[in-house]
Simulated scan of single mutants.
Amino acid sequence: MSPRKSVAETRRTRERIIDRSVAIASVEGLEGLTIGRLATDLGMSKAGVLGHFGTKESLQLAALEGASETFSRTVWEPAADAAPGLARLRALCELWITYLERERGAFPGGCIFTTAAVEFDARGGPVRDAVARLYAFWRRRLIHDLRLAVQAGDLAADTDPEQVAFELIGLYTGLNQAIQLMGDREAPGRTRRALDRLLAPAR
Results as ranks from 00 to 15, higher is better:
Arg102Tyr: 06
Ala200Leu: 11
Arg197Gly: 14
Gln151Gly: 06
Ala130Ile: 04
Asp145Phe: 03
Ile97Leu: 09
Arg73Ile: 07
Glu162Tyr: 02
Val75Phe: 13
Gly105Leu: 11
Pro78Met: 13
Glu65Gly: 00
Arg147Lys: 06
Arg128Ala: 15
Thr74Glu: 15
Leu155Thr: 07
Asp121Leu: 09
Glu31Gln: 12
Leu175Asn: 03
Pro126Ala: 14
Arg16Trp: 02
Arg4Lys: 13
Ala91Cys: 11
Gly32Arg: 00
Ala122Thr: 14
Glu94Arg: 13
Gly174Arg: 05
Ala63Asn: 03
Ala83Thr: 14
Asp41Asn: 00
Glu57Thr: 15
Arg90Tyr: 07
Ser58Met: 05
Arg141Phe: 05
Gly85Cys: 11
Gly36Tyr: 07
Pro3Asp: 12
Glu69Ile: 11
Tyr172Gln: 06
Leu168Met: 10
Leu61Asn: 12
Leu155Cys: 03
Ala122Ile: 04
Lys56Tyr: 05
Gly124Ser: 09
Glu103Asn: 14
Gly66Tyr: 01
Ala157Ile: 04
Leu148Pro: 00
Trp76Lys: 05
Arg140Pro: 00
Ile179Met: 10
Ala132Arg: 15
Arg102Asn: 09
Pro78Thr: 09
Thr34Asp: 14
Glu94Cys: 07
Gly32Met: 00
Ala23Met: 02
Val150Arg: 11
Leu134Val: 09
Arg147Val: 08
Arg88Met: 06
Leu181Met: 12
Phe166Gln: 08
Ile17Ser: 00
Gly109Asn: 01
Phe120Leu: 06
Leu38Arg: 03
Phe137Cys: 04
Gly29Leu: 02
Glu57Met: 12
Thr98Lys: 15
Leu61Glu: 11
Gly153Ser: 05
Val150Met: 00
Ala47Asp: 04
Ala91Asn: 09
Gly153Glu: 11
Asp129Arg: 15
Val150Asp: 02
Asp160Gln: 06
Glu31Asn: 13
Ser2Met: 10
Arg11Ala: 15
Arg147Gln: 09
Glu65Lys: 07
Asp145Tyr: 02
Gly29Lys: 01
Leu146Glu: 00
Ile24Glu: 01
Asp184Gln: 05
Glu31Ile: 04
Leu64Tyr: 14
Asp158Arg: 13
Tyr135Lys: 05
Glu69Val: 07
Thr34Phe: 09
Ala8Gln: 14
Gly170Val: 03
Thr115Phe: 01
Asp154Ser: 11
Arg37Val: 05
Glu9Leu: 15
